[in-house]
């Protein structure tokens, strides 16, 4: 069975729409279609693991998004849908992200373990 490792690195793309992050949205859509996938958060995207992210204060010229993005909830839904979500421990630590502030379902790996994830996957998509 083809298994896809999605490495999500780029993060916070402007919050213009609810589907921000676009990669996570597409990964969820592909999961719903039947694709076997996992996610590895690296670099700035380790910030996605933090609980209680809010972008609901966005308002420009009196115009507010009806459904602002909730990245932590999107990630939680992905985990609940059965997608394994890893994140790189050192990348979070150097950004001052405390483990106790993150989603319980995240599986933390060291940078040295990433090569093993590459070996286990059939395909690797770097977002």
């Amino acid at each position: 069975m083809t298994t896809i490792l999605n490495i999500v690195e780029r993060a916070y793309q402007g919050t213009l729409e609810e589907q921000d992050d676009q990669a996570l949205w597409l990964i969820h859509a592909l999961k719903n279609a039947g694709a076997a996938q996992s996610v590895l958060l690296r670099g700035p995207a380790t910030g996605y693991a933090v609980r209680e992210q809010l972008a609901d204060s966005l308002e420009i010229g009196g115009v507010k998004p009806g459904n602002p993005s909730r990245i932590d909830q999107d990630l939680q839904r992905l985990i609940e849908a059965g997608v394994k979500v890893w994140a790189i421990r050192e990348d979070a630590k150097e950004r001052g992200i405390a483990p106790e502030d993150t989603l319980a379902g995240i599986q933390w790996v060291d940078r040295a373990e990433v090569a093993g994830l590459f070996q286990e996957a059939t395909r690797i998509f770097a977002w």
Partner: peptide, 19 residues
Amino acid sequence: DKGAEAYLATALELSKRNE
């Protein structure tokens, strides 16, 4: 780009694993 070094580090690790 620090990401470049991170990806190349993974490439190096895979090389060391004889990939």
